[in-house]
């Protein structure tokens, strides 16, 4: 096997691993959604059509708390907005256009983004994005259906340590990026901001706040007229 084939196989295996650890959380989502008053079809529709975990948990959380379906949708929007930020980073990397880009957009989530932005070539970025995105999509939806039908009988994913697995996966994805110049401090500030907000906000808001931190630090620390990172860009203003 060539080194390239080995690397491709490793990217797909990593994607499937993340899909397994993350997808299993669909069990929790399915069980919580039904307990919140949605039926099985509505629960599965959320996983199939919304397909961004934090937004889905926010939606059923709002319904469980007695909120209107419109306020539930608003909570889902708020948390889903970070996927737009991911898309901005992914678009030039994946290089898809038209219908293919529109379809691929459905798979833009925390995990698929993280598994593709650190790849060095477009081919590897696409492979990481698709293997992770499709694995999470398939397993998340399957697990949602099972969780919605059987409830909590399969036990809590935490009993198998899967909550810790998801944290470790994000840490492993962050790790190599911390060595790039100018990333350690924004990462630390974002982490502190997220931790500070955890006691005062619902799930997902701390993550969104970190996105805002990134935007502010990025804008403040870009010198006027600076060239793009690593590129000899001719200014055209």
């Amino acid at each position: 096997m060539t080194a390239e084939a080995r690397q491709r196989r490793r990217i797909v295996a990593d994607g499937l691993g993340v899909g397994l650890a993350t997808g299993a959380y669909g069990l929790s989502f399915g069980a919580i959604s039904v307990a919140s008053g949605l039926d099985v079809a509505q629960t599965c529709a959320l996983s199939l059509l919304v397909f961004t975990g934090a937004s889905q948990f926010a939606f059923v959380g709002a319904i469980a708390a007695g909120g209107s379906p419109l306020s539930a949708a608003a909570a889902a929007f708020l948390l889903g907005s970070r996927n737009a930020l991911y898309g901005i980073r992914l678009a030039p990397l994946l290089g898809w256009r038209g219908l293919r880009r529109t379809a691929a957009a459905h798979l833009v989530i925390d995990e698929s983004t993280a598994m593709s932005v650190l790849r060095s070539t477009r081919d590897e970025a696409r492979l990481g994005f698709l293997s992770t995105g499709l694995a999470v999509f398939a397993l998340w939806n399957l697990a949602t259906l099972i969780g919605a039908v059987v409830g909590n009988q399969l036990g809590d994913p935490r009993d198998y340590g899967l909550d810790a697995a998801v944290g470790a996966a994000f840490l492993a994805l962050l790790w190599p990026r911390l060595r790039e110049p100018g990333t350690a401090i924004p990462a630390a500030v974002s982490a502190v901001a997220a931790a500070t907000l955890v006691p005062y906000s619902g799930p997902g808001v701390p993550i969104l706040a970190a996105g805002v931190v990134a935007v502010v630090i990025g804008l403040v620390t870009t010198p006027p007229g600076a060239p793009k990172d690593g590129d000899p860009v001719v200014e055209t203003q």
Binding site: R82, L85, Y86, I88, R89, D110, T113, A114, V117, D163, A164, V166, G167, F170, L171, L173, L174, R177, L178, T183, P186, A187, A188, V189, S190, A191, A193, A194, A195, V198, P203, P206, I207, A209, A210, G211, V213, A214, V215, I217, G218, L219, T221, T222, G225, A226, P227, K228, D229, V233
Partner: peptide
């Protein structure tokens, strides 16, 4: 330049926050 810098920082910032939350 500013958009490029922000776009590069966003995954780092969100991953750091995701680690803390998880």
């Amino acid at each position: 330049p500013a958009v490029s810098r922000v776009a590069n920082l966003i995954p780092v910032a969100l991953l750091a926050a995701l680690v803390v939350v998880q």
